[in-house]
Amino acid sequence: MRNLHNAVIGEKVIVNSLFAENELKERLLALGVTKGAKLEVLRKGPQDNLTVFRIRGAMIALRKEESSLIYIH
C-alpha cells in the first residue's frame, strides 16, 4: 500500500484508508476524502510540497504532510 503523496501527475487512484486525526480528519472527510473515493492528481507545486487533486468534481490542494496520511490503491 502506498500513500497519496507518491501518486504521479495524471494518475487516478482510489482511497484505501485515512490515518489523519482530529481536525485534519474532519476536514478531509468534509472534502470527500473517504474510503473508496476516486482522486486524480492534477499538478504538483514546487518541491512537491503542495499537490492539487480532483475529487468528486472539485479541486483541492493538500500539503505533503496531509497527503502522506492518505493510503491509496
Results as ranks from 00 to 15, higher is better:
Gln47Phe: 11
Ala7Gly: 12
Leu31Trp: 06
Pro46Asn: 13
Asp48Trp: 05
Arg63Pro: 03
Asn16Ile: 07
Lys12Pro: 01
Ala37Gln: 04
Phe53Ala: 03
Ala20Tyr: 08
Ser17Asp: 15
Gly36Arg: 08
Asn16Tyr: 10
Lys38Gln: 09
Tyr71Arg: 13
Lys64Met: 06
Met1Trp: 11
Arg63Lys: 07
Leu42Pro: 01
Arg43Thr: 03
Asn16Ala: 13
Gly57Thr: 09
His5Thr: 06
His73Lys: 12
Pro46Met: 14
Arg2Ser: 12
Met59Gly: 01
Asp48Ser: 09
Phe19Asp: 14
Lys44Glu: 15
Gly36Phe: 10
Glu65Met: 04
Val33Pro: 00
Gly57Ala: 13
Met59Leu: 07
Ile60Lys: 03
Ile55Met: 09
Asn49Asp: 06
Glu66Ala: 13
Val41Phe: 10
Lys12Ala: 09
Ile9Asn: 11
Glu40Asn: 04
Val52Cys: 03
Arg2Leu: 13
Ile9Phe: 09
Arg63Leu: 11
Gly32Asn: 04
Leu62Arg: 00
Arg54Leu: 13
Arg27Ser: 04
Ile60Met: 05
Ile60Glu: 01
Val13Arg: 02
Ala58Glu: 15
Asn22Lys: 15
Val15Tyr: 09
Val41Leu: 09
Ala37Lys: 07
Phe19Ser: 15
Ala7Pro: 06
Leu4Asp: 05
Val41Ala: 11
Ser17Ile: 05
Arg56Phe: 06
Glu26Arg: 14
Ala20Thr: 15
Leu62Ala: 02
Asn3His: 14
